[in-house]
Design a protein around this nucleic acid. Structure first.
Length: 766
DNA sequence: CTAGGGTTAG
């Protein structure tokens, strides 16, 4: 904006144009117009009639303005017009243009300007050559950079510094060192920029030895008392993992400012020694070092790591006292701190006090909503952010994908995915894994697989995401095949990966595979089993009807069984009609939680399956007495981006008539007279004694019927429901898939069911 | 005149 204004101020109609620019928002149009006017003006008013090139102050300002806006194409066109008009290009214009090429990594434009520079300014200065060199380095084209460097006659410290650090940045450290030696041999004495330019790319332990050599070189070169160089070396030691070395040097430094202190505090925080970082901060305050906003970002991170609310609040008070609360650098980590301490209110307040929140502030806030299960808030915040127009970043999208997973919002998720691709903001691994999970939780394992296969070198989390997706969609063999592939690729399974593997086994009755993975997980993968792993195993046995094994495991495992342990077990007892063990399990379950609806439902179904009618009736009575109403059951389906939600017996939908006649048509073709199985859906109605559990108008069926009449016949019907699918509706979905030939995907509270031609991917386990 | 530092994610 400022460049545009400086340009309009010079225009012949300055007041006019400035007024217009202030009232409307179309500065680009003004510039385009002016571009023509200015050239005509220059030509017609060249009263001196000098054939030689004119400098053209206004034209060059326009060029600078274009390059600052990143409009390289327009700049090239304008450059041609300037040629035609014999107006020459100033060195400063070239500097700006080349800088923009480097920033945008636009090598072709950069080469064009380089070539043009060589053509028009034969003896271009060392300064401009350095600009070109920097452009090539910034574009990552070491070949171009090297070629130019070889041609350069007037190499100065800037040239040497640039090419040396470019090789270091690209990881060619030995090449950097060769050049460094060449430089010394050619009699050039390195200055601090050479060292700092090189040191900042020493970012992992493999650079430590080289870093030490460079350090000794600094000492021999007499720069060992320079604050910036010392800070750079100390930070180099931090990044190379030698914290003691960093501290040693730090302690020797005569003068230290807040930058130096911050660097070392980062080291301690990254080494998971937040307490040491905080004691450094205490020393810093005691020594009276002037504090700035950056210091607080690392101090708050250390507090967040310790989840030390009291200390964090003290720091917060300090920030307020220094008047830094509205400062984005102090305010943003404050938001994050309160998020990590699970105080969302305070996080929101801190966010609102930031006067100019940046993308990091927004993503910290959106992340905060996600971590506190406020996914709708996260989406709302994202939408308001997008309408306001500040920069979006890859963190924000990663969080948004997570929110879409939780909300199973496929249309927003896919839209966001497209936007992220357009902006180049799908973060490697983080964003990509979030996408895999998102698509899989939205019922689209096909998209999830595609997203996974496009990941360059998937890490443990990415592999786990796709394995777990297949597990929940009932593709056990594919899950296990992926698990094998994962190991061939050298990714190490972690605790979550093994949960996914065991889940895959349990949903497909692969008992011996599950036993094997359970047995070797510690020795082969170094993963210590948790209660979640044991619960998976209990589930495996229970679903397979190996109830004695399941019961033995519950009794002998190194953890106290929790609700999940008993639920899996009782579920198996119901399926296999084992009243004796089932009662024991149910008793234990209800002892752990009297209020858990699922416990009563399981017990009721256990009794009815064993034809114990009196006991079953008793459970019903208990449920009514205890007013078991937890969560209203509902199912929903998204059609054309709009969510249609149904509850049992729902007649609120505008197309209710069509939906019910479709249902009738479908019921007509089944012999379903309802059963005695009680579903959570019936329970949620809370009118148990009156209601016959016929399940004919369950929310799931309403959603399926609506899906049939409102989606294209070749598209899968994707239904979500908040509770577990009931047996009758499961049969119903199978039936519908047969008679209509449609694929039906139902996500219930536990997993996905893919119905096709009368079969379900869950093999009737769920 | 500057350099050297930080905060967000699966």
């Amino acid at each position: 904006m400022s460049s545009i204004n400086s340009f309009t101020a010079l225009s012949p109609n300055a007041s006019h144009v400035v007024g217009a620019a202030a009232s409307d928002n179309a500065p680009n149009i003004k510039i385009a117009k002016f571009a023509q006017i200015s050239l005509n003006h220059t030509l017609s008013s060249s009263s001196l009639k000098i054939p030689a090139k004119q400098l053209g102050k206004v034209e060059n300002l326009h060029l600078v303005s274009l390059s600052k806006q990143g409009k390289l194409k327009e700049a090239r066109e304008f450059l041609n017009q300037m040629d035609d008009a014999c107006v020459s290009v100033s060195p400063h214009s070239y500097e700006c243009l080349l800088e923009t090429c480097g920033n945008l990594k636009s090598l072709s434009d950069g080469r064009y300007f380089h070539e043009r520079l060589g053509r028009t300014a034969k003896n271009s200065s060392g300064f401009l050559q350095n600009c070109v060199l920097r452009m090539y380095c910034d574009c990552g084209s070491l070949g171009d950079a090297q070629r130019l460097f070889d041609e350069m006659i007037e190499r100065n410290l800037v040239s040497w510094g640039k090419i040396i650090s470019a090789y270091a940045q690209a990881g060619f450290l030995s090449k950097s060192f060769w050049l460094f030696r060449d430089m010394l041999e050619s009699g050039v004495k390195p200055d601090l920029l050479i060292y700092t330019g090189l040191l900042k790319y020493f970012k992992n332990p493999s650079y430590l030895e080289a870093g030490k050599q460079l350090h000794s070189h600094v000492i021999r070169g007499g720069l060992s008392s320079n604050l910036s160089v010392n800070t750079a070396i100390s930070n180099m030691y931090v990044k190379c993992g030698w914290l003691e070395g960093a501290k040693l040097l730090f302690d020797q430094m005569a003068d230290k400012d807040s930058v130096a202190w911050t660097g070392l505090m980062v080291g301690y925080t990254q080494a998971e020694k937040p307490k040491d970082a905080l004691s450094l901060f205490a020393n810093m305050v005691m020594e009276g070092v002037e504090l700035d906003d950056f210091v607080f970002s690392i101090v708050l991170k250390a507090c967040a790591g310790l989840e030390d609310l009291k200390l964090g609040k003290q720091i917060h008070a300090y920030i307020v006292k220094l008047g830094l609360e509205s400062n984005v650098s102090a305010g943003t980590p404050l938001v994050d701190f309160y998020v990590k301490c699970d105080i969302l209110d305070s996080a929101c307040r801190a966010f609102e006090r930031i006067s100019e929140p940046n993308d990091v502030s927004w993503s910290a806030m959106i992340c905060g909503f996600c971590q506190n299960d406020k996914f709708e808030e996260a989406v709302k915040t994202f939408k308001s952010l997008r309408s306001k127009g500040p920069v979006l970043n890859s963190f924000i999208f990663t969080n948004l994908f997570q929110a879409c997973s939780a909300l199973a919002d496929f249309s927003l998720g896919a839209q966001a995915h497209a936007d992220a691709i357009k902006g180049g903001l799908v973060s490697y691994l983080y964003g990509e894994s979030a996408l895999v999970t998102m698509y899989s939780k939205c019922g689209r394992l096909d998209y999830a697989t595609e997203a996974f296969e496009s990941i360059d070198a998937p890490d443990t989390v990415a592999w786990t995401a796709i394995i777990s997706g297949n597990a929940y969609h009932g593709n056990a063999s594919e899950a296990l095949r992926l698990f094998g592939r994962m190991q061939n690729c050298g990714a190490r399974p972690n605790a979550v990966t093994l949960i996914a593997v065991l889940t895959a086994c349990s949903h497909s009755g692969l008992v011996s595979e599950a036993k094997h993975h359970m047995k070797v997980m510690r020795s082969e993968y170094g993963v210590h089993p948790t209660i979640d792993h044991y619960n998976c195993m209990i589930d495996v046995y229970s679903r397979a009807g190996l109830l004695k094994e399941a019961f033995e495991l519950i009794k002998n495992m190194p953890f106290d069984p929790d609700k999940t342990s008993w639920k899996c077990f009782v579920g198996g007892c119901w399926t296999y009609k084992n009243l004796e063990l089932g009662e024991i399990g149910a008793e234990n379950l209800l002892q752990l939680d009297q209020e858990d609806t699922a416990g009563y439902v399981l017990l009721f179904n256990l009794y009815t399956s064993c034809e114990k009618w009196e006991e079953a009736a008793h459970i019903r009575k208990l449920m009514t007495e205890r007013n078991m109403r937890k969560e209203l059951s509902c199912s929903w389906i998204t059609v054309k981006g709009k969510v249609h939600r149904f509850v049992v017996g729902d007649k609120h939908h505008p197309q209710t008539g069509e939906i019910y006649s479709k249902l009738e048509e479908l019921n007509h073709s089944t012999n379903n007279n309802g059963s005695d199985i009680l579903s959570e859906e019936d329970v949620s109605l809370c009118s148990l004694p009156e209601r016959k559990a016929y399940a004919l108008d369950h929310s799931e069926r309403l959603a399926i019927a609506f899906g049939l009449i409102s989606t294209p016949t070749n598209a899968p019907i994707v239904i979500f429901k908040n509770l577990r699918a009931c047996k009758d509706c499961h049969d119903f979905a199978k039936h519908v898939s047969t008679i209509t030939g449609r694929e039906i995907i139902v996500r219930d509270a536990c997993r996905f069911h893919h119905f096709q031609s009368g079969e379900c991917s869950c093999n009737d386990y769920w």
